[in-house]
Design a binder for these strands. Structure first.
Length: 352
DNA sequence: AATCCGGGGAG
DNA sequence: CTCCCAGGATT
């Protein structure tokens, strides 16, 4: 049996029942594919259901506010996906008459849709014979064919895309694409795959040469940068001071608090830190440490300290993004995970 | 070519 | 801890 037929055979016997596999509606497939970028199925599934419920079609998505989209996205990470979806939904309304495109050449031009996602949506919605190459496909092909070109190098990317498209099962592109990804996710797993029961083990290069653990090859990760976020919690009656994060850094258009970032762990008993705080807020400041949280992202480790601030006079001319928000409405704003967790722990009762 | 962009789960 | 997940955009 051929490589392709083995994969499809395995898929028919072992596939999971996932909601986006019951449709060829390009809009619904697009929802699932964007949500699943760099995201496990188990983590993305509740978000997929939530988005489809709130936005049954692309028109509903396009007419929502960006803030509502980000609020629904809260906790999933890589928030540019949500912002790009919102922009793309509006382009589909204006440039495609509200009909979500199904052709690769149309899809690839849309925000947030790259080579993988354009291949996925086009093959699943219209059967276009474009091979998907995601983390699963890289791994399956690297092992089965014994390819040691780094998968995250330009040369590797080209090599794997070329091979994947040569292998494409043109009689049923959607079925084949689903099959190879599911096989990578469940059988040819990153760690300790069950090679002894694999239907392809007789012809798998890595298995026969004891290279399963070495493949695929990936080149070096940059070291994580440490950052120190010092948040100041300012309340006034039933209101709290929040800040909308701007472009050029993480969590764009999500909300946090007045922030002083320092280059190293600040000693808040030190007069110089006190002066920095005083300069930031105005005069006559007093603050006490509430809590600390270490927040780990892909390229940075953020040391987050929360302080309660008293006796403050703000210089709003320097802090235009600051706004007072009533505690009862705070939960409507999209927040980074570390902010949301802090509020859950310290303000839940006051937010009702 | 390298770096940025989140958060979670497995080992 | 480390690795990686149905990747894409930016520099």
């Amino acid at each position: 049996m051929t490589f392709q037929n083995e994969l499809i055979n395995w898929y028919n016997q072992n596939k999971r029942d996932l909601p986006w596999r019951h449709t060829n509606n390009a809009y619904i497939i697009w929802l699932s594919e964007i949500i699943l970028q760099q995201t496990r199925v188990e983590q993305g599934l509740p978000y997929f259901n939530k988005f489809l419920e709130n936005f049954p079609n692309v028109s509903d998505f396009a007419s929502a506010s960006e803030s509502k989209v980000l609020k629904l996205w809260q906790g999933l990470g890589y928030y540019s996906r949500g912002r790009n979806m919102h922009a793309t939904a509006q382009i589909v309304m204006s440039d495609f008459n509200g009909v979500f495109p199904t052709l690769y050449d149309d899809l690839i031009k849309l925000k947030g849709i790259g080579e993988y996602t354009a291949a996925a949506i086009s093959s699943f919605s219209s059967g276009e014979a474009r091979a998907v190459v995601d983390g699963n496909v890289f791994r399956v092909l690297a092992r089965y064919y014994g390819i040691n070109t780094p998968i995250n190098s330009p040369a590797g990317k080209k090599q794997f895309y070329t091979l994947a498209n040569e292998l494409m099962f043109k009689e049923d592109a959607a079925l084949y694409n689903q099959a190879i990804m599911e096989f990578g996710a469940m059988q040819c797993k990153p760690k300790s795959p069950a090679c002894n029961i694999c239907p392809l083990n007789q012809t798998c290069y890595a298995f026969n040469n004891h290279l399963v653990k070495e493949l695929p090859v990936k080149i070096g990760k940059a070291e994580k940068k440490h950052r120190f976020f010092n948040y100041f919690i300012c309340t006034q009656g039933d209101e709290i001071l929040v800040k909308e994060r701007q472009a050029g850094d993480i969590w764009q258009h999500l909300y946090d608090f007045p922030l002083i970032e320092t280059l190293e762990l600040p000693n808040w008993m030190d007069p110089s830190f006190n002066n920095t705080v005083k300069d930031f807020f105005g005069i006559n400041t007093e603050f006490t440490l509430i809590s600390y949280k270490k927040h780990i992202l892909t390229h940075q480790i953020i040391h987050v300290h929360f302080f309660a601030l008293k006796n403050y006079i703000f210089n709003f001319s320097k802090q235009k993004e600051l706004n007072w928000v009533s505690l009862s409405k705070l939960d409507e704003l999209p927040q980074p995970k570390v902010i949301h967790d802090f509020l859950e722990d310290n303000f839940k009762n006051k937010m009702e």
